[in-house]
Every structure is written in C-alpha cells, then in structure tokens.
Write a protein that binds this DNA or RNA. Structure first.
Lengths: 113, 113
DNA sequence: ACTTTTCGTATTCAATTCGCGTACCTTTTT
DNA sequence: AAAAAGGTACGCGAATTGAATACGAAAAGT
C-alpha cells in the first residue's frame, strides 16, 4: 500500500518534514506511511491525495491513473477504455480522430491557420 | 465518510450478512462501516470498492463519480473538466462536438446512413 | 396464529494499531 | 569542523479495530 507516496514527494522535491508540515502531522507519522510502517486514517489519506493532487485509488495502488481527470492524448499510447460514449468505450481510432479534430478546431480558433 | 455504502448495498439488495460474507468479515464489522461507527482498513476498503465495482474515492466521498471510467454524455449536463487534450480541458462546445462526431462516425460504420 | 429465522442496531472486550516524541546516524550546509 | 537538515527506527500512552454477543423488529415458515 502507498508505494507511490515516496515517488510523489520526491517529484515535488519535498522533505519528509516539509510534507508532514503541510499535512499538519509529525514527521515520524508521515514517514511511517511512506515506509509502510503505518496506514493513515481515511481522512489523512484524503488530505494526502489533495496535497499531491491525485486520487486515493492511485495512492493505494488500486489504479495506475494518477490524476482524477483524463488527458486524452495519454490514451493514444495505451487506450484503456477509460472513457465511453453512449455506454460504448471509445476505440483507439475514435480517440485519434477526435484529438486531431480538436487540435484543428483550436488552431483555427486561435487564427494560427 | 462512506456515506454511499448503505445505498450501494441496497441497490444490490444485499443484507448486511450477505455483504459481510462476500467480504469475508463479520456482520458487525461491516455494519460498523455503514453506520460510520468504524473505519475499514485500506485493504478492506479496497475489497469493498471491488465488490461494488466503484472507486475508493467515491466510497469516501472524495468524488461523486461512481465508476472509474467516464461516460462522456454525462458531461453534457455538467461539464466537469474531467477530460483534457494537450493539457487543456475540453470546453462544453468541444464535448458536444465530440459526442456528435463519434455518434456520426459510429452510425456510418454501422451503415445506418 | 405461533414459531423460527433473518434483519439491523448497539455494546462489550481483547488485541491491534495509531500518532507522536525521541533518539540516532548520514548527508548537506554554513 | 560545527551546525542544520534529512531519513530511519523504536517506545509509549491513547485510541481504534474486529469479532462476538445480545436485543427488538420484521419477514418467512409451519
């Protein structure tokens, strides 16, 4: 559980102390979560997810999707069937086409063409 | 926390005992979660999310999005900026276009036009 | 109609776990 | 070299857990 925590903190280049301060807990407490020595309460876990702008499901390793929004261009590499229309998952082709479509539309709107 | 649990269980028309059995825990234990008397461990919570086919974030009320995939037509009513392309959230217009685009393409493919 | 089973709620209790302080060693900074 | 900061490990009191148990109400069975 919480294998991603250490990586997330280092991405932000925060120390254990800094992170614990932001969360309003003792350094040893937060360190315990990272090391797997302890588990946070649901409330603390929610605060941690807020701080790192991710989901609880990602923190506990239930999903590998880091954000709670979907960047569609990420789906180009591995279409994960995370989005659907009319209950039917988007195919890879549909995603490719749509990305092209929106990019074109945006570029027109910005008068770059 | 876990306000959704009772509703989810009743949707399935399961009793406390049935649900607890499926989760491999005592009835009183599961009942404690529903009533808010106790909090489950992260592992138990993950099992519960699996059983109800939802996310931990939904169970603890961190999001109101019940599934871990996004049905885009739901965003037509309340565009929640849950999806983005090139790091830029889709606008309401883009979502409308997207849906129309995919629907058209699908109907062509199915030779309905 | 009466009995039995099932349902949901509440309480008790031993065992576990939590959060924090503290100490310790290593690395970095001054 | 000294001081500060970073990371790890441990001990303790306090709080929480999970399960057993008990209870009245509702549902099902005879």
């Amino acid at each position: 559980m919480l294998e991603h925590l250490s990586k997330l903190r280092k991405q932000q280049k925060w120390s254990l102390q800094e992170t614990a301060d932001q969360l309003g807990m003792a350094k040893s407490t937060y360190a315990g979560y990272e090391s797997g020595y302890r588990e946070p309460s649901l409330q603390s876990l929610s605060h941690i997810a807020d701080l790192f702008e991710t989901t609880v499901d990602f923190l506990i390793g239930r999903t590998d999707q880091e954000q709670d929004y979907i960047e569609i261009t990420n789906l180009l590499e591995k279409p994960d069937a995370k989005i659907s229309i009319d209950e039917k998952p988007l195919s890879a082709d549909e995603i490719v086409d749509f990305v092209a479509f929106v990019r074109l539309k945006r570029s027109i709107k910005e008068k770059k063409i």
